[in-house]
């Protein structure tokens, strides 16, 4: 374990923030306070957090429809995200994007994406910029198991290998593409092995274990940064909720639903760190309290904020008629 105590505490804070954020957003989506479609990242926190910990300001990430966790882990403002998701003035996208299109280019977050497979080629583009402009940056393209089947993903992987750009495709395999299990929708094949066949090093890791994710990410990202060789990490994660809020999940057995949250990445993290004597329980409790307060005040502020000005309907379209 190479992480110092401050980093451990901050990593936990990031995961706890994602969890609390998703719980609040999930509840407010179900109660109708949040409009539109909302796809929750709860259960997958160690993936975004463990990977983004190895990224800096010059690095980019691409994301997907389940993007809140990626956004938070890359350093976006929770307050700005809340305003956006609640469709308020001052939101990260001015209330024009919402949950499914949340983006924060100021922290290198290329945007969530409403199109499955839409993000992988964009990640290659950011990596091409980094290589061409010699920024030293890399791009991590977060895609899901469902998107790993898309033609756009195959094309993006081919392009990355041909161009030799510093992109790391992270396949967050949460077991389901929408309502269909990966065993069916990918024909039972090994997703990492398929990606490797494009000519990249491919790795697999347990996404409930922050430390395993982070150690692998450190190694893979450093290598890609140094060599401009693209790589793949398949992270096995659990999707705690349905495809979107309100999905009754009839396709998951009672047993699965009862056990899916047993491997809680936050609990596993805490246990490891406390047992190693690195941080005390009290600190975790303190962080939990601070996170809860921050999420609650961010949500309240968002609910209290005014909606976007109507005149913004037609701004930022380059050309007006």
């Amino acid at each position: 374990m190479q992480l110092d105590r401050d980093t451990l505490a901050e990593s936990y804070r990031t995961m706890a923030t994602i969890r609390a954020f998703e719980e609040r957003v999930g509840a407010d989506s179900l109660s109708g306070l949040i409009p539109g479609f909302v796809h929750l990242y709860a259960g997958e926190e160690a993936s975004a957090t463990g990977i983004c910990l190895e990224l800096g300001e010059k690095d980019w990430i691409g994301s997907n429809h389940r993007g809140h966790g990626h956004c938070i882990a890359k350093g976006s403002s929770v307050e700005g995200m809340m305003l956006e998701i609640y469709a308020r003035e001052g939101g990260l996208c001015g209330g024009k994007g919402g949950s499914m299109h949340i983006a924060d280019l100021s922290v290198g977050m290329l945007g969530a994406n409403g199109i499955v497979g839409g993000g992988a080629p964009l990640a290659v583009g950011a990596a091409l910029s980094a290589k061409t402009l010699k920024t030293g940056g890399v791009c991590v393209g977060f895609i899901g198991d469902g998107a790993s089947n898309q033609g756009t993903t195959a094309e993006a992987m081919t392009m990355a290998v041909v161009l030799k750009v510093p992109v790391i495709f992270v396949i967050e395999n949460n077991g389901y593409g929408e309502f269909t299990a990966v065993s069916y929708h990918s024909g039972g094949i090994d997703l990492a092995a398929r990606a490797a066949s494009f000519g990249m090093e491919a790795h697999k890791v347990d996404g409930t274990d922050f430390f395993a994710v982070n150690e692998l990410a450190r190694e893979v990202i450093a290598k890609t940064r140094a060599t401009n060789m693209p790589a793949v990490i398949e992270v096995a994660v659990n999707r705690w909720h349905g495809h979107f809020t309100g999905d009754p999940q009839a396709y998951r057995s009672a047993e699965e639903l009862a056990t899916v949250r047993l491997s809680d990445p936050l609990v596993i993290f805490k246990k490891r760190v406390i047992e190693a004597g690195l941080l005390p329980q009290e600190l975790f409790d303190k962080i939990d309290g601070e996170v809860a307060d921050r999420i609650d005040s961010a949500a309240r502020a968002a609910i209290a904020a005014p909606p976007p000005d109507i005149s913004t309907v037609t701004t930022d379209v380059y050309v007006s008629y």
Partner: peptide, 9 residues
């Protein structure tokens, strides 16, 4: 919907 899922629905 639900192919391959644990509920066999």
């Amino acid at each position: 919907g639900g192919q391959g899922g644990s509920a066999d629905v």
